[in-house]
Every structure is written in C-alpha cells, then in structure tokens.
Design a protein around this nucleic acid. Structure first.
Lengths: 201, 201
DNA sequence: CAAAATATTGAACAATGTTCAATAAAAAGG
DNA sequence: CCTTTTTATTGAACATTGTTCAATATTTTG
C-alpha cells in the first residue's frame, strides 16, 4: 500500500522531527509514542522506522534542535546587555528561563535513553557534540569579554558554571531543594556568580 | 492459588524492596520489571501489586533507601576528617564518589516517573522529604562546624553547593562536558569550593 | 470442623517499540 | 503505451511491559 509521494525524504524527516518536538513540548518524552506521532503526521508507525533507526535516534535529533534553540535564546538575551558582569548574569538567567519555558523539551535532553542504560550507550553523533561545544563557546566568550578571563580559565570556568547552573535548575524544578517561590533559582544563581566569580569582579 | 504463608507482610515488603534495589544496582531502572522482580523473589507479578500501589511507588522506597545510604556514606567519610576545609572537601568528594559507585541507583533517584510527567506528579511522601532535609543538615552542620558559617548562611550555601555538586556529577557522567579522565570531577569540585567558599577560608 | 478472612496466583488486557512481507504508486525501459 | 523495476508505505504481527482481578489455596476464626 502506498499513497502518492507527497514529500521528499527530507521533508518527511522534517515533518517527523517537528511533530515529535511539538508532542514532546506538550506531553513530554513519555507522550512521544510511535503511534501518536504517526497519527500526528498522518502516516503509519512503520514509516517512522523508515526514516529513523528507532525512537531514541529520533530523540537525538529532537534534543539537538532543543539545544539549538537554547543557544539562540542565550545569544539573543545577552546581545542586548553591556559587556560586564550583568551580561554574565543574564546568560545564567537565560539558561534557567529556557529550562522553565521549555520544561519538557529540556528534560528530554537529559532523560536516559530507554534501551541502553549506560552500558553500551551509543556515542552521540559528532554534530551533536559540536553543538555542545558551540554552547560552551558562548559561555567562554562571555567570560572572556566581560570579565577578562584568560582562555584556559574561561574554558574550565564555563564548564563549571554551566554544570552548576544545570544542578540548580534540576533540583529547583524537581523540588529536591524544598524551596518555594519562583525567585529562588535566581537568588541561588546570583549567589553562585557573585561568590564564584568574586576574584574577577 | 496460594502457598503456605512464609513471610509476614513486613518481611514480604522487605523482600521486594531489597531485590528491587539489587536489580536496579545491576541493571538500572529499566531492568526493574514486574516480572523480573517477581521471579527474583519467587512470587508472581500480582503479589508485588498487593504490597505496592505500582512500580513507581516501589521506586520511591528504593530511592529512599538509596538516599539513606548516601547519607551514611557521607557521614562516615567526613567523620575521620579534621574540622576544617578538608572536611568540606571530603563531603563534596563523597557525593561524587557515591554517585560513581552506585551509578544506577543514584540515577534512579532522579529518573522521571514513567506515568505522571510533571503535571500531577504525586508529591513525595513526608518521610522522603524528611530524608532530604536530613541530608542537607549534614551539609549545613559541616559548613557551620568547619567554616563558621551562620545558620542562615549555612542553610542557603548547603543547598547551593549540593545543587552544584549534583550538576557537576550529572554532566560529568553523561559526557556533556566533553572532558576525559576520572579526575576531572574532582578538579571541578576543588575549583568550585575554593572559589565559592573563598570568603570563609 | 465449617465458615469467614486472607494471601497468592496467573491468565487477561491495553499499550508500547519494532519488524517486515505485502502492496500500491512511481520511475525506468523499450 | 505497456512492462518491468524500483521505491514508498502500510498495517498486521510479535515481544514486552504495567496492571487488574476473578479464582483459588491457605490460614484463621468461631
């Protein structure tokens, strides 16, 4: 069975990817089932497997796209800020804001793949790694431009700050910290930045 | 069908819990299926549901136990250290070590529950919250004893440090940071502690 | 010892990821 | 224009999962 060819393979892949992203934004990773996605794109479940190896491979592309939006969001937020500490803070806030505003997509980036549980987890593709590097580059550049960090210091500080931001965001969102009020993550970020970066201020 | 009653309900619950913990330690959250667990305890799948509402409720108890071991591990590690900065560092290392040595159990603590994806997630039971509070108390006490922090400062610094430690550990383990070598997390922790706590040293 | 309460079962259901022979449409060849 | 080959798509089928619950075996009660 078949229909008239309505999409190029590339268009079909984009159709799958965009609908997967929408489903995840609405219902989270667990809402993305082969059948739900097939219905959304008006194809059958089998078609998805002609385009993607499996749903985990699809998730890699969805997460890649999410990270791209994160990077864009951060870059836009800091572009309008002065080249000083306030830009560093704006960058940190941007990460927390993005996680809040794109909660389910952001969670999916760090959700463990259902199959391989850390044994023989397939290495992420090179272009995905490159995107992570690009994001860190935004942080490094900000530290260098705003606080005059050296390249090596910026490299390690960028990764450390990003990791701390990530931890604050994770534990804030899942309630581990037992804190209330939406302002708490920002207060924690302020505290972190002011103390950690004190010697550069 | 039934057999002679071999366990008290309490013993049965402990049998389920301990075997669930062992399976998770070996095969991760995804390895814990109702049927695999039933086979391990030599009961049928249905029996598990006489004791626990569902597998997510069982996971709460498994995670509660994991957090208890984390607390014990941290307390033992710092007990032998002097009451100064080296104890704070030892506590931070203990968290990273525990996560490495109990990777799958530790991951399960932060794994999203399959069903409720952040909509109507059932609040964690009070005793679970209490355990989190107890763990933070260890950190707070360490900061007060070793670095003379005030109570309010210890409260917020404990939560911030814990969150940062968590982020460093998560991103180190999943490879996001693109770093190699097992020493990297320790170097990051050293950097974090020395900078963040500089004013107290 | 009969009756009520309890513990345990395992078959059954719905939902999932995934596969793949079958098939309809399109493209290529003559 | 028809035949053949290639391609795109399907949806039924399989294995596995979480979960339920009437049936049943055992224990307890009276």
């Amino acid at each position: 069975m078949s229909r008239r060819k309505e999409c190029t393979p590339q268009q079909l892949k984009e159709l799958i990817l965009s609908n997967a992203g929408r489903i995840i934004a609405q219902h989270g990773r667990s809402g993305l089932t082969a059948r739900a996605l097939a219905e959304a794109i008006h194809y059958s479940p089998g078609t998805i497997y002609n385009v993607y190896e499996d749903l985990d491979a699809l998730m890699v592309d969805v997460n890649y796209e999410t990270l791209g939006r994160l990077q864009m969001y951060c870059q836009q937020k800091i572009a309008i800020l002065p080249t000083d500490f306030s830009r560093v803070r704006g960058l940190a806030y941007a990460y927390a804001d993005f996680a809040h505003q794109n909660l389910r997509a952001w969670e999916a980036v760090y959700a463990p793949n259902r199959k391989m549980e850390h044994d023989n987890a397939p290495a992420l593709p090179e272009y995905y790694q490159q995107r992570l590097t690009d994001i860190f580059l935004v942080v490094e550049t900000t530290l260098i431009d705003c606080l005059n960090l050296s390249q090596p210091a910026a490299y390690s500080s960028a990764r450390l700050l990003w990791a701390c931001l990530h931890g604050i965001t994770v534990l804030s969102l899942n309630g581990t910290l037992g804190l209330v009020g939406a302002e708490q993550p920002y207060a924690m970020i302020d505290d972190l930045l002011e103390q950690y970066l004190a010697r550069y201020l």
